[in-house]
């Protein structure tokens, strides 16, 4: 599972971080950091998918393994 962020679009609104803070981290410069390796945990992966569909500016894309 890999997540791609469109840097042109991402405004650091933090919706993704609210849903899956283990994977998404917006720093104080509003730059989004995304964890490289996402554990196989199905509950976490469900939240990651939810973060992606919840992005209000549709800046996130998922590439499944």
């Amino acid at each position: 599972m890999k997540i791609i962020v469109d840097r042109q679009r991402c405004d650091g609104n933090g919706v993704c971080m609210g849903i899956a803070p283990e994977v998404f981290d917006v720093d104080d410069d509003l730059y989004l950091h995304i964890a490289e390796n996402i554990p196989e945990d199905p509950e976490l992966r469900a939240r990651v998918r939810q973060s992606i569909t919840s992005c209000p500016i549709l800046a996130l894309k998922l590439v499944e393994d």
């Binding site: 933090g14 609210g18 803070p21 917006v26 104080d28 509003l30």
Partner: peptide, 12 residues
């Protein structure tokens, strides 16, 4: 304002 990490920590 411009403190997303702290705000999200407080949310949790």
């Amino acid at each position: 304002i411009n403190v997303p990490r702290i705000v999200m920590k407080l949310r949790r």
